[in-house]
Simulated scan of single mutants.
Amino acid sequence: MLTIKLPQLFRVHQMPRVFWEDGIMTGYRHPKSSALDCLLSSFQMTNETVNIWTHFLPTWYFLWRFLLLSYTLDFFGDSYNWPLLVYMMLICLYPFTSSVAHTFSSMSTHARHICYFLDYGALSLYSLGCAFTYGAYVMPDRWVSGALHQYFVPVAAFNTFICTGLSCYSRFLEVERPGLSKVLRTAAFVHPFVFDNIPLVYRLLFCFGVDCTWNEAIPLHIYHLIFALLTGFLFASHLPERLAPGRFDYFGHSHQLFHVCAVLGTHFQLEAVLCDHSSRKDWLATYSQADTLSSTLGVVATSVIGNIILICFFTATLLWSPHANSILQGHIPGDSKTKGH
């Protein structure tokens, strides 16, 4: 009979410091796992298993929605749909990249950082996808074709470089200055979120009268914002595991809840965007300038290339800079340094 031996799991103090998670005491995979061990661990209950599946399964849901939309919308011939096309590609990319990062992050200390560099880059690009759709379909009536509308997407593209650069840099501070690392990483993702949602917040709080669009998308936008705020709170607080270390190692810790809230928020955001996309089409076609190839795919290509360059820079720094040694230090289970544990 064919049997598969699942990888051994470890406790937190058996792991290099860079692998430690606040309030998570058990269920760690070997920090030098093989690629096969990483794949097998996704079918074994570890402290990463739910993280992997809560983003891998939604990837297929968003791909399915993308496929359905491709049957009803002309994504290539109609420039009105180009921002939605960019958004759909990027909401499929970010959960898939996150799932891959969580799967293979235990191959080594180097691999862990590189996996999350890629994860941060995908999240940064997702923020650009949000800006595309918000600029195209969500912008308040009175702001359409105004200064903010014209520069909204280019600024959002620049924000992706800030987000990726700051979040990747924060990993170099993780061991020696964990508090500052967390602040920088949180700021890296809050910044593009706040910018992207300026039109929506104005539309919800300050826009009244005949030149404001109150339609069935508004409740969906509100649901999205609620889940987005919950996502940020869970990411920053490490609750509930911080209150009861070891109790939520496998189920219910903040990163799992963070993933679930992020996906639900994206779901409601997608529904709201689709609602505005269809209900405002005639009005926007009259009062808004049509998107050009350079203002959509050109901006996306520039952002993707720029983010890849940033990730390559931080990866090279990680691999070859002597100043990066501090975030790679730590014992390995089975090494002589661990004999006393």
Rank of each mutant, 00 (worst) to 15 (best):
L319I: 11
L293D: 01
I114R: 05
K337I: 01
D78L: 08
M88Q: 14
A316P: 04
H191V: 13
A236S: 15
L166I: 12
Y151L: 10
P58A: 07
G246L: 02
F104A: 06
G306D: 05
I327H: 00
T186M: 11
A236P: 05
Q14K: 07
I4M: 01
K182L: 09
Y116R: 02
W60Y: 15
F251I: 15
Q269E: 14
R242E: 09
G252T: 08
P58S: 02
T302V: 07
L39Y: 07
I332L: 15
T296D: 03
D141M: 11
H259Y: 01
F104R: 10
C38G: 07
H149A: 13
G165A: 08
A147D: 11
T72A: 14
V263C: 07
V50N: 07
D22V: 13
V155Q: 03
G209Y: 05
F66H: 08
Y287F: 14
D249L: 00
S336T: 14
I305P: 00
S79P: 11
F206R: 11
L118G: 07
V299D: 02
F248S: 14
A316S: 13
W320A: 06
I4D: 08
K281Y: 02
L328H: 09
C275Q: 12
I332E: 09
K281G: 06
D335W: 01
T315L: 02
S181D: 10
I308K: 00
W64G: 13
G334N: 06
L264D: 05
F75N: 10
V263H: 08
F314E: 02
H253C: 02
I198V: 15
T302C: 13
G265E: 11
L184I: 07
Y202N: 15
K182H: 13
W320N: 13
P219K: 04
V155N: 01
H323W: 10
S295F: 06
V144P: 02
T292I: 02
I162R: 01
S34P: 06
F268Q: 10
R142W: 04
D335A: 14
K339G: 10
W53K: 11
N81K: 03
A147K: 12
S278T: 12
V138K: 09
F233R: 05
P140M: 00
G121I: 03
S288F: 04
